[in-house]
Amino acid sequence: MAFSASESMKKLRQERRKHGQCAQCGNPSEKYLCERCNGMRKKPEPKEFREYPMQRKLKKPLSDRRLYEDMIAQELRTSDIAAYCGVTQRTAEKWIFEGSVPHEERVTKLCRLLKREVEYYYPLYKWSSKK
């Protein structure tokens, strides 16, 4: 059986805890670590809340500039549009940045949210005749 420093340290900490000592320094303590050892531990800094940027840095030309400009004018994010239309944020991004055309019911919700007619955003949109 090979000697392992991590195993021997583990046993040492266990022995110290059995006798009511700090696992790290061996001073009397009711908790796992005494206040001095606990104070020396690095604690992660809490992350600040960062609001998602409203405007996206464009890497390529926009597919739907009208939709994007209205979204920015009304201070909406893609997450707001997605929540209103009942789709994922990625789907809403596809509509705005990649030129994907939404389904009929989503188009009406999107136009209602942005207060425009369907023909303004999708002049060639063909309404399906499912009846």
Score class of each variant (00 low, 15 high):
residue 1 M to E: 15
residue 1 M to F: 11
residue 1 M to C: 14
residue 1 M to G: 15
residue 6 S to F: 13
residue 6 S to L: 15
residue 8 S to G: 08
residue 9 M to K: 13
residue 10 K to Y: 13
residue 14 Q to K: 11
residue 14 Q to A: 10
residue 15 E to N: 10
residue 16 R to N: 06
residue 17 R to K: 09
residue 18 K to I: 08
residue 19 H to L: 08
residue 20 G to A: 02
residue 22 C to E: 00
residue 22 C to H: 04
residue 26 G to F: 00
residue 30 E to C: 08
residue 30 E to V: 09
residue 31 K to I: 08
residue 32 Y to S: 12
residue 36 R to E: 13
residue 36 R to M: 08
residue 36 R to F: 11
residue 37 C to P: 00
residue 38 N to Y: 08
residue 39 G to K: 04
residue 40 M to Y: 14
residue 41 R to I: 11
residue 41 R to P: 03
residue 45 E to S: 11
residue 45 E to Q: 15
residue 46 P to G: 09
residue 47 K to N: 08
residue 48 E to K: 05
residue 51 E to W: 15
residue 52 Y to V: 12
residue 52 Y to R: 10
residue 52 Y to T: 14
residue 53 P to E: 00
residue 55 Q to I: 06
residue 55 Q to K: 07
residue 56 R to G: 02
residue 57 K to A: 11
residue 58 L to Q: 07
residue 59 K to M: 12
residue 62 L to S: 05
residue 63 S to T: 10
residue 63 S to I: 07
residue 65 R to V: 10
residue 65 R to I: 12
residue 68 Y to W: 04
residue 74 Q to A: 04
residue 75 E to C: 06
residue 76 L to E: 02
residue 77 R to C: 03
residue 77 R to A: 01
residue 78 T to W: 02
residue 80 D to Q: 06
residue 82 A to Y: 01
residue 88 T to F: 13
residue 91 T to A: 15
residue 91 T to I: 10
residue 91 T to M: 12
residue 91 T to Y: 06
residue 91 T to V: 09
residue 93 E to C: 15
residue 94 K to F: 14
residue 94 K to M: 13
residue 96 I to F: 05
residue 97 F to E: 07
residue 97 F to V: 04
residue 98 E to Y: 15
residue 98 E to V: 08
residue 99 G to H: 05
residue 100 S to I: 11
residue 101 V to E: 11
residue 104 E to N: 04
residue 105 E to W: 07
residue 108 T to I: 06
residue 108 T to H: 11
residue 110 L to P: 00
residue 111 C to I: 01
residue 114 L to K: 01
residue 114 L to N: 05
residue 118 V to I: 05
residue 121 Y to A: 06
residue 122 Y to A: 00
residue 123 P to A: 01
residue 123 P to C: 05
residue 124 L to P: 12
residue 125 Y to C: 01
residue 125 Y to D: 00
residue 127 W to H: 10
residue 128 S to T: 03
residue 130 K to F: 05
residue 131 K to V: 04
residue 131 K to N: 08
